[in-house]
């Protein structure tokens, strides 16, 4: 978990990440996480949702069942990604570039009743 805080000289973005519908189980059973993430990826490209998903798997996930969250490096079917309360499809999906104070919600779809 030690590398979740980026090096001080690198620019960072403050964001909030929420988990719902049971996904919080994978992230220390905590529904809201205030994070500071690197503003760019290893290729100096702006941090996107794809980068965030990878970052979360590497730095925030406490449960080994990563396939409950990602399959083949993409978010698994049955999880909705919401960028500031809008379906990520409206915002460019994985390519969306994160902005300071963004709220990203991951929610797994429910089927019971």
């Amino acid at each position: 978990m030690g590398d979740s805080v980026p090096a001080p000289d690198k620019p960072t973005i403050p964001i909030t990440v929420d988990f719902s519908g049971g996904l919080e189980m994978l992230f220390s059973n905590q529904k809201r996480h205030s994070l500071t993430i690197p503003a760019t990826d290893s290729n100096e490209k702006p941090a996107t949702i794809a980068f965030l998903i990878d970052h979360l798997c590497k730095n925030l996930m406490t449960d080994p069942r990563s396939e409950m969250f990602v399959l083949d490096k993409h978010i698994r079917p049955g999880i909705l990604v919401l960028i500031n309360d809008a379906d990520w499809e409206l915002e460019g999906e994985e390519a969306y570039e994160l902005q300071p104070k963004d709220n990203i919600l991951f929610v797994s779809t429910l089927h019971g009743g």
Partner: peptide, 12 residues
Amino acid sequence: CFPKPPPPSAMT
């Protein structure tokens, strides 16, 4: 809204 169902292992 939900093009693909979750894998059975993720269904509760």
